[in-house]
Amino acid sequence: MLLSYRSLSVAAVFSLSSLLSAADNPFIGRWALTIPGGGAGWLGVESKDGALTSSVLWGGGSVVPTTSTKLDGDTLIVTREQKNKEGKLNATETITAKADGDVLKLTTAKKNAAGKDMGQPQEFTGKRIPAVPAAPDLSKVKFGEPIQLLNGKDLTGWRLLKEGVDNGWSVVDGILQNRVVKAKDKHFGNLRTDAEFEDFNLKTEVRTQEGSNSGIYLRGIYEVQVMESFGQPLDSHHMGALYSRITPSVAAEKPIGEWQTLDITLVDRHLTVILNGKTIIDNAPVLGCTGGAMSSDEFKPGPIYLQGDHTNVDYRNMVLRPVVK
């Protein structure tokens, strides 16, 4: 079919308008969210070939792509679908946002599969995350005196992240162990240090149990995954990964029941992970919080916290050296 000159002109103007609007789009970038209820979230908005795309982290779980992203005047509209394990639609969530400089004001509303409202719309906020700086020269970074986080005797210096949950953590024969009982009336907790830290190097040993799924949260924001994944393909959810964000470059896990070493360095929002002597993440930029983060604010000190709500796991010899500025 031949297009008229007028049609071509309209198409050209529309294309130019789309490119200009993308360049001037105040929503493009990464946003730290405080989602309804106060949890940590994240939104990333990009422009590719004149079209908007986005991904989102909502409290727990992984960073996932959204279903659609579009502009309506000065409003960003993001839609994401929630499906069950069989792929059947459970709900559709629509997030709308307005930008005021580096601040977002957002609203979320859900409809079930039949298109009926699920509760009232909820308001929440977001803040633009500054660009990640250049990768630091780790050979020039100075570290302070080592801090022994585990005393091999008891839980001194540690406490449950939340009160009112079951405590599966104890020290046995010098080993910090978590033991979880699967029951409907049991809800086991995560364990955090009393002390809070900024940038640092952290060395520890970990021993997975059958089906282990734990994690080491750096500053309570970024989870380095601890999982029984020996012999499995590379994945951003496996041992040593930055959960759902950075996939290890090589599989370096040991079989279940063997002690494994983790050497983790966090400097200027860049992460290095050495697992069992092999560098699996090499000074890579970290683009935002991970699921289960205490906060989406990447610029304040926070604790080391160990995920204990899932399964059994053991830790020992945990030593932290803070960056000296």
Rank of each mutant, 00 (worst) to 15 (best):
Gly38Glu: 06
Gly38Ser: 07
Ala40Cys: 09
Gly41Cys: 05
Trp42Cys: 01
Trp42Tyr: 15
Trp42Ser: 06
Leu43Gly: 01
Gly44Lys: 13
Val45His: 02
Glu46Leu: 13
Asp49Thr: 10
Asp49Pro: 02
Gly50His: 08
Ala51Trp: 12
Ala51Leu: 15
Ala51Ser: 14
Ala51Met: 14
Leu52Arg: 03
Thr53Ser: 15
Ser54Phe: 00
Ser55Asp: 14
Leu57Tyr: 02
Trp58Pro: 00
Gly59Lys: 03
Gly59Pro: 02
Gly59Thr: 06
Gly61His: 05
Val63His: 10
Pro65Ala: 07
Thr66Met: 09
Thr66Val: 15
Thr67Met: 06
Ser68Ala: 15
Thr69Pro: 02
Thr69Ser: 12
Thr69Glu: 06
Lys70Pro: 07
Asp72Gly: 07
Gly73Lys: 07
Gly73Tyr: 06
Leu76Pro: 00
Leu76Met: 12
Leu76Ile: 09
Leu76Glu: 02
Leu76Lys: 02
Ile77Gly: 04
Arg80Ser: 11
Arg80Cys: 04
Arg80Asp: 11
Glu81Gln: 14
Glu81Lys: 11
Lys83Gly: 00
Lys83Phe: 00
Asn84Phe: 00
Lys85Trp: 05
Lys85Ser: 13
Lys85His: 12
Glu86Phe: 06
Gly87Pro: 01
Lys88Trp: 01
Leu89Gln: 04
Asn90Thr: 09
Asn90Trp: 08
Ala91Leu: 11
Ala91Pro: 03
Thr92Cys: 05
Glu93Gly: 10
Ile95Asn: 01
Ile95Pro: 00
Ala97Thr: 08
Ala99Leu: 10
Ala99Val: 11
